[in-house]
């Protein structure tokens, strides 16, 4: 998707899941949602520290991500609340 240079520039920086291209593996840093709304995400394995990867966009442009071998469909609004950083060592 992206060439190595953009990846190194973005590496380590915190991004929003919504800004991540398809098939880029990232690590979840933080969920910017109140506990009640974050809990369903936590229950399904969207935990700080987990690896996730957007694999597809729905026809309306909402992301489908792969976490722990499970496919999860999110709304864009939710993806905007997920703080991620590019997983290290994936660029090479």
């Amino acid at each position: 998707m992206h060439d190595t240079r953009t990846n190194t520039n973005r590496a380590g920086r915190e991004l929003r899941l919504a800004q991540i291209g398809l098939h880029e593996e990232v690590e979840l840093v933080r969920i910017d949602l109140p506990d009640e709304q974050a809990e369903p995400l936590l229950e399904r394995g969207l935990l700080p520290g987990c690896r996730l990867c957007p694999v597809r966009l729905s026809p309306a442009g909402d992301p489908v991500v792969m976490v722990d071998g499970t496919l999860l469909a999110l709304r864009r609004e939710t993806a905007d609340c997920l703080c991620v950083r590019l997983a290290r060592g994936l660029a090479d």
Partner: peptide
């Protein structure tokens, strides 16, 4: 109520 965070597992 708070909008539920729509989260759909695709089996």
């Amino acid at each position: 109520g708070e909008p539920s965070s729509f989260l759909m597992e695709l089996p």
